[in-house]
Design a protein around this nucleic acid. Structure first.
Lengths: 190, 190
DNA sequence: AGCAAAACTTACTATTTAGTAAGTTTTGCG
DNA sequence: CGCAAAACTTACTAAATAGTAAGTTTTGCT
């Protein structure tokens, strides 16, 4: 049975995020969400005035999610490699669920996004890129990593490999993603 | 003035391709095309029965385009590096025109594409990936390149760096793309 | 010039879309 | 219990969408 009451807003966010990762921002409607919840369109509008607000909510939650992950990693005793792997693991999950990453999804639709959310997309990319860069920097200092590019550039390379890697995997299969994953780890390990 | 007659079909393909690279398959309509041509919706339907057929036509043309490039490179006296650069140059042009590559665009929308065109997307990826792989292989044999991954894997890395690189560039600016471009060239040069 | 095919326009349809206003039910709280 | 706010449903718009059928114009060819 579909959840009710206060959970509904969270459920809408969850379903919306899944739809974006699966089909993209321009390919889902309020009806898609309300059908899953066995509710009416207007119920979704009650929680989020418009699709614009819904997207903003989804991005905000995703931002929070990554801030959370960042804090977790900071207090953990994981090696830099393990931290990087926790990040990469998120992409592997996407491949197995036939999805692409939110960043890649909204980036592809960027020119069609409402102006009010574009800033959030930039913020999200800065956050994720910063996290990877920091982990790389730290790992290099500790002697775990041995890449020659700047940490920022190496983070860019990893991000693009993964983002496009999951996009490719939906078409040509998981094997290509696996190869990319292995190769980028070899790159940073040196 | 908008072109007429036999050129119209080609114009529709050109405009459609531009719209896919700029906004994505799900974010443009027949009206967008007919407006540019100063014609009616039905005129576009005369040349392409449905959006599905239009997409198929666009992908076919893009396939032809790449086959052409492949032949050109084969008979040319360019070094492997110059060949690779001709390929990369296509992505630089995209960045400057606020577009992403067709492959990345349809890959992001893959789950929403009509079944009849999915095979063409696979074909396109195989073709492009094969071209890059071949160039890398050839360059390594000639001593121009010195990468350690298999040519296939290295081609995958380059493709994903470029595809996601142009997606990223629309948001965070050209500078990131330029860094990626430089770095991937350093990678293959060894 | 005449004619047939090609290249359109006119005039629609059915569906989906985001969104709204007003009314009803549910829920938790004093 | 009673009541107010929260969480919905009902019942709609208005606009955009892909698509179609039938009629008109344009074009190239003999």
């Amino acid at each position: 049975m579909a959840p009710r009451n206060q959970d509904t807003k969270q459920e809408i966010l969850r379903i919306g995020m899944d739809l974006i990762k699966r089909y993209g921002y321009n390919a889902f409607s309020y009806a898609d969400i309300s059908k899953v919840l066995e509710m009416k369109n207007a119920a979704v509008h009650y929680h989020f005035r418009g699709k614009e607000d819904l997207l903003a909510g989804i991005l905000d939650q995703y931002l929070d999610d990554y801030v959370q992950l960042g804090k977790q990693l900071q207090v953990s005793r994981l090696t830099s490699l393990q931290k990087l792997d926790k990040f990469i693991e998120r992409y592997s999950v996407l491949v197995d669920s036939n999805c692409i990453c939110i960043i890649g999804s909204v980036a592809s639709d960027y020119n069609t996004l409402p102006e009010s959310v574009k800033a959030r997309v930039t913020e999200l990319i800065d956050l994720v890129l910063g996290m990877v860069e920091k982990t790389l920097q730290e790992g290099k200092k500790k002697g775990e990593f041995h890449f020659t590019e700047s940490a920022r550039t190496q983070a860019l390379l990893i991000m693009t490999n993964l983002a496009a890697g999951v996009q490719l995997a939906r078409i040509s299969g998981k094997q290509d993603y696996v190869q990319i994953r292995k190769a980028l780890l070899r790159q940073v390990k040196g």
